[in-house]
Design a protein around this nucleic acid. Structure first.
Lengths: 266, 266
DNA sequence: CGGGAACTTGACGCTTGTCAAGACGTGTGG
DNA sequence: CCACACGTCTTGACAAGCGTCAAGTTCCCG
């Protein structure tokens, strides 16, 4: 076993603002770090993979060195059609999953916040059906799926977390589909803000004030609306006193009002 | 080990037309049948769970008796909020997954055809977030998830199929969300017909002529449109010569035309 | 400080939802 | 076997929601 290189500890900065001193290296030059030792200092470890293993047990995964990769805004983590050999964990920064529509435009399928795992969509065919791109300077942990799978065979806890995670993502996608199918654009935007708020809160951020990391166009693509409609909806929600919107800075003033004023699914 | 009871073989009838001689019993009275022995005569075994185990190996699952349950049109397989202890396989007949919207209407989340597994959405929380109902007289195989999970720990092949199935469902849901988000109703209806066609073909039915098992309203709910819009779209597709539509009887005349004439996602 | 990306807002027209009337089919009871 | 009733589907007219196009503003980054 090789000696671990000097562990490159990275101070965690709020959701996607990487420390200014970072010289982001080439996309293809991952920094190796030894397994869960590196996770010990990671700010998102409590919602990430390290929480999967039962305390006291060790699996293949714990003996696997986990690489990290830094990405500049716009760089791809993986591309549509590439072989799916890794699952990724957003360490800081946010990501989007996109596919290319026939007419060349890109369709945003989901957003990934720090601490969230992504790349599971490739397990079905062994190839990624989407591309994942950083929407701001970011860093991912690169988890080899073969070892993750092996660990699932060794530890019921890991297996359970794996299936739960997949199932949860399935439920989220369903919820999105029904949201788009059953509601109008203003309700979708409201639901989107509430959803972001919850996910950020689960990761220790403020639920009431946060910065959007994505453009109006990306939100629109995700929600099945145009960027103009998203903009109008945000203005309308602000006019009604539910939120304040100043460019990407969002403050949620009345979450119950947001929730209650719509015939939202469930 | 107990002797298997006289195996109740059920002749497979085209997609959801249960044999007339069946006296459908009460929803809550499952018929027990011994594990995979019963699967041997099942028409959908090649696309169902029996194909998961590697040839020559036996897992917990193979030793588990698998119950079957017959359902009349409209009866629930499971309901929103119930504990998720089983995965279900549609043996014959079709099903829908639905949630209840705030205003009382029901939102169709997906359809399940013979040979398809469903109920995975409950694994995340241990409770089903949707209800599943038969949309015609039907029968399901009841697969205890605890044993399925155990089998996944014993056999890499089962584990792989489990994650693949979950991932595939995830991809399908994403595709639906992007379909609703990015296309107009006529394209959605066209895509829906093509999707049904493919799934039926994979199960040995004709890809070009089939019967819809669901109402226009259910299709509309699923696709984010009203029943009137679905009806108009079907008429329009027929007028363009892509399909013939006579109530629920569909014939696809020009699949390539259907596909090509739209700016369909991917 | 300048240029461009991102955003906001308005006007107009298309797509789709809503409401309504009527046709078709199926199942039930006379 | 027929008549009736109900569920399902089709089609039309109108209105609302949203997309498209366009102009102008703000902000960020070089």
């Amino acid at each position: 076993m090789q000696m671990p290189p000097a562990v490159h500890t990275v101070r965690f900065a709020p959701c996607g603002t990487p420390p200014a001193h970072l010289n982001l290296p080439d996309e293809r030059a991952p920094t190796l770090a030894p397994g869960h030792a590196a996770c010990a200092t990671c700010m998102v470890r409590h919602v990430c993979l390290p929480s999967w293993t039962e305390p006291g047990t060790r699996t293949t995964l714990d003996r696997t060195p986990i690489a990290r990769r830094r990405l500049r805004k716009g760089q791809s983590v993986f591309r549509e059609g590439e072989r799916c050999e890794f699952i990724f964990a957003a360490r800081y920064g946010s990501f989007k999953s996109v596919t290319c529509l026939r007419d060349g435009r890109e369709q945003v399928m989901s957003f990934h916040l720090p601490g969230e795992l992504f790349g599971f969509d490739g397990l079905a065919t062994g190839m990624h059906p989407t591309s994942a791109r950083a929407i701001e300077d970011a860093e991912v942990c690169v988890l080899p799926y073969a070892e993750l799978s092996e660990a699932a065979g060794e530890s019921p806890s890991v297996l359970h977390h794996l299936t739960s995670t997949l199932s949860a993502e399935l439920v989220r996608e369903r919820h999105l589909a029904s949201l788009i199918a059953a509601t109008r654009s203003e309700e979708r935007v409201a639901a989107f803000l509430l959803n972001l708020s919850q996910r950020l809160q689960a990761r220790g951020y403020s639920a009431s004030a946060f910065q959007l990391r994505m453009t109006r166009e990306e939100i629109g693509s995700y929600l099945g609306a145009t960027l103009e409609t998203v903009s109008r909806c945000l203005s309308s929600l602000a006019r009604q006193g539910f939120v304040t919107v100043r460019r990407r800075q969002i403050e949620i003033l009345d979450p119950e009002g947001l929730r209650a004023s719509f015939a939202d699914p469930v």
